[in-house]
Design a protein around this nucleic acid. Structure first.
Length: 508
RNA sequence: GCCGCGUUGGUCAAGGGGUUAAGACGCCUCCCUUUCACGGAGGAAUCACGGGUUCGAAUCCCGUACGUGGUACCA
């Protein structure tokens, strides 16, 4: 039994969006579940669109998600090169394309872009709005099928720009078994003669994917549903070049949809949620799109929510660690229908993971957050305690700042409107006296403070409950946060008194 | 237009001939808590439509509708 090798083949041009990450994730989970290898190959077939740094971006995203490939394309593996541009340099694609021509499965086409444009216009009709270069019209075009051998050879000898197209057979049914959808059948007459090798010598995806998968000994391939219509071309190519028995097993994953139709980059801006794993700057427009990482998602939550978008374990469990996902992942339970991305649920996953993870795991991320705000955290012990206290109130990482910065800084803007309506002289004097009395407390702990507070209130004939909200506003600044006496105990005697006096001066 | 793929509450979904059609997110009500959350208890809400097959269909078959993808020297 040959070893399972699953590959993800991103094009380093468009960032790594939700659908892309889910595809990698399923590749990864499947491979690891089978104890096999997870490979990443870079499909930089179109050099004009190659973007500097985009390849590194993909690996950064994978690293963040914790789903790194076993063989790095950058350092190479056993079946390298792992970049198509490098394989092109070896002349391999040309070689296989020539083989196809010799076998009669492909042909030279000399049509210029203008001629193709003209063809599409001439044959356009209401019934056929987008005519394809297929068996019905190829004899009307300029190619080695319609031209005589002498004419073809003359054109080639003259160095005429040309491409190599697959010659789709007539009236054949191509079928293959998709791991998710079962048997898929296509009539060859309905598929166009796809370009395999472009005029510049670069292969198109169709040629490259077959040759690369063969040379890299790939056993299973996951890709998006958008590839289903061209799958018969790939099957045919496998048949012509290497034999169907060596073809990897395919799985075509359903699309991830946005609030209205297919999920697009614009949806992010429109509905206010990220669509890329990490910050992505569009090389053309220089437009920055915020990523899940920067938005404050934990990688654990990110892969969890993505895994569940189209797959489930068949149980009621929804929270899975990466290890659990690997152990439980089963291709039979992957859906064939598209799933709409729900940002509310995505946030819920993050919140659950924040609660689930021990504070020490959260510390580095939150420290970075504080540093960015210009606050340096020195006491790690204290910091961890704070995080533990507020974590169930946070959905995204940046929430930690709002929810806990009063533990480190005296709040500047107090929500006085929350107390003013019920504020009076009695309360004013209670607090000024209590602030004084606090000086004498020797056991500065939660219970002592609470008992002392209640006793003092009762002595003044005020219900302790009525004084708790004002005290909270004094210490926190707003109507949120952990229990007041816990906060007071944490920030210490001096700071507590300081905050009360400060607030009192604003209320007087 | 043609071809492919899909369709269980608003969303993710379990269920694959007989179920009161799970569960989760979100929403609403209540409890806990004199803050905000967490937690707990409830509630509203679903098998796209039409035909078959069958004693019986969300489940099987066929149509239709809708959605989505492809129809590029993009991937």
């Amino acid at each position: 039994m040959s070893k399972v090798r699953v590959r993800f083949a991103p094009s380093p041009t468009g960032g790594l969006h939700l659908g892309g990450v889910r595809t990698v994730l399923y590749n990864y989970l499947f491979a690891k579940n089978k104890g096999g290898q997870f490979i990443v190959r870079i499909e930089d077939t179109d050099q004009t669109r190659f973007v500097e740094g985009a390849e590194q971006y993909i690996f950064d995203c994978l690293k963040w998600c914790g789903i790194e490939p076993d063989e790095s394309p950058i350092h190479g593996g056993d079946f390298g090169p792992y970049r198509q541009s490098e394989r092109k340099a070896q002349g391999l694609y040309q070689q296989y394309a020539d083989q196809l021509i010799q076998q009669g499965n492909a042909y030279y086409a000399f049509d210029t872009p203008e001629e193709l444009e003209k063809m599409r216009n001439d044959f356009k009709s209401a019934e056929n709005p987008s005519p394809q270069y297929d068996l019905h019209i190829r004899m009307k075009m300029k190619n080695s099928l319609s031209l005589s051998q002498e004419e073809t050879e003359a054109l080639l000898a003259a160095g005429t720009k040309h491409v190599i197209r697959i010659k789709m057979p007539e009236n054949e049914t191509v079928s293959f078994t998709d791991m998710i959808r079962g048997e898929i059948k296509n009539e060859t007459s309905l598929v166009d003669d796809k370009v395999l090798l472009k005029a510049d010598g670069m292969p198109t995806y169709h040629l490259a994917v077959v040759i690369d998968d063969y040379l890299m000994q790939i056993t299973h391939a996951f890709r998006g549903e958008e590839w289903l219509p061209s799958a018969p071309v790939h099957v045919l190519l496998w048949n012509y070049l290497f034999g169907l028995d060596k073809m990897p097993e395919w799985a075509h994953l359903p699309l991830i949809l946005g609030p209205s139709g297919k999920l697009s980059k614009r949806d992010g801006a429109k509905y206010g949620f990220p669509v890329f794993a990490m910050n992505w700057t569009d090389p053309k427009t220089n437009e920055l799109t915020e990523g899940f990482k920067e938005k404050g998602f934990l990688p654990e939550a990110f892969i969890n929510l993505l895994a569940l978008l189209g797959w489930n374990a068949g149980t009621e469990q929804e929270l899975f660690s990466k290890e659990e996902l690997i152990a439980l992942f089963n291709i039979d339970r992957v859906h064939s229908g598209g799933a709409k991305f729900d940002y509310e649920k995505a946030k819920w996953f993050n919140q659950e993971w924040i609660k689930k993870l021990p504070a020490e795991n959260l510390v580095p991320k939150i420290k970075a957050l504080y540093n960015a705000k210009g606050i340096t955290v020195s006491d790690s012990n204290y910091f961890e305690k704070v995080i533990e206290l507020v974590k169930e109130r946070c959905t995204l990482i940046p929430d930690f700042y709002e929810q806990s910065n009063f533990f480190f800084n005296t709040p500047e803007n107090l929500d006085l409107d929350a107390v003013k309506p019920k504020w009076n002289g009695d309360k004013q004097s209670f607090f000024s006296e209590w602030a004084l009395a606090l000086q004498d407390i020797s056991n500065w702990d939660i219970t002592t403070l609470e008992e002392n507070f209640k006793a003092a209130a009762t002595a003044k004939n005020i219900k302790p409950g009525e004084l708790q909200l004002p005290l909270r506003i004094m210490l926190v600044g707003g109507k949120f946060g952990p229990p007041v006496f816990v906060i007071a105990a944490m920030i210490g005697k001096e700071e507590t008194i300081k905050r009360i006096i400060n607030a009192l001066s604003q209320l007087a």
